[in-house]
């Protein structure tokens, strides 16, 4: 691993843009066996940035999960076992998730049927709907995706524009109380706001050798993600020079 200086977690648009900028100094790890993250492997932006990263000389280890970072070494696990990557800096470009119930401060009962948009979408893709009339909280990318996928799977989702305040129901969701009224529903899909995914042990809080590249606009744009990747590359280079 001599010569490798920046480890990047995440091969989505941000991670690839960062790798393309750093070239041979970059090693990218992603738990999914293809590039692209939420965009998917065959999106134009994914193909363009993957080619740019590979052409620049970055190493891509796809299908390997980053486990821990101790400030000098990233440990990842994949099909061939453990990979130890010595690095001067770590860039976390692992994407973001919708805010959960606690983060949205939605009060009330605790019945079944309150799920994240990511879970609702994954289930819908396999033909399972979280409810016949699920209320979708939020209006960003995940809300639109959940709406489309739940409809495709046969549900009749209700888009909630107001601020969700409380869930009502005993065993199952019956109502969602919002600041502009009460919505009768049998599930609540949380798709409001985004928070960065930080699931590499040792890289959860800000550190001197860790750069976070996780843009979280609720309406994510590819250009924003690319720009964030390039910014992270600059920040990682600054760390390398100071090391």
């Amino acid at each position: 691993m001599a010569g490798v200086t920046v480890a990047i977690v995440g091969a989505g648009v941000t991670g690839l843009a960062c790798a393309a900028e750093l070239g041979r100094d970059a090693v990218v790890v992603d738990r999914i066996p293809v590039c692209g993250g939420v965009l998917g492997f065959d999106h134009d932006a994914t193909r363009r940035l993957e080619e740019a990263a590979r052409t620049a000389g970055a190493a891509l280890h796809l299908g390997e999960t980053a486990i821990t970072w101790d400030g000098a070494e990233l440990v990842a696990m994949g099909q061939d076992g453990v990979r130890r990557i010595r690095a001067d800096a770590l860039v976390i470009a692992a994407g973001a998730r919708p805010r959960n119930r606690a983060e949205l401060r939605i009060d009330g009962d605790r019945p079944h049927g309150v799920v994240s948009a990511t879970v609702a979408c994954h289930l819908a893709e396999t033909g399972v709907v979280v409810g016949r009339r699920p209320a979708i909280v939020g209006d960003g990318d995940w809300a639109r995706r959940a709406d489309a996928e739940l409809r495709h799977a046969g549900a009749e989702p209700i888009r909630v524009r107001g601020r969700a305040l409380a869930v009502r129901g005993t065993t199952r969701v019956a109502e969602l109380v919002c600041d502009d009224g009460v919505v009768a529903c049998d599930a609540v899909v949380l798709a409001h706001g985004l928070v960065p995914l930080r699931n590499v042990d040792g890289a959860v809080v800000d550190g001197v050798r860790t750069v976070y590249a996780q843009p979280c606009p609720d309406r994510g744009a590819i250009a924003t993600a690319e720009e964030e990747g390039r910014r992270a590359a600059g920040a990682a280079l600054a760390i390398m020079r100071a090391t």
Partner: peptide
């Protein structure tokens, strides 16, 4: 291949 982690090429 369509899967819960997205579409993957085989």
């Amino acid at each position: 291949v369509r899967s819960p982690i997205g579409d993957l090429p085989f």
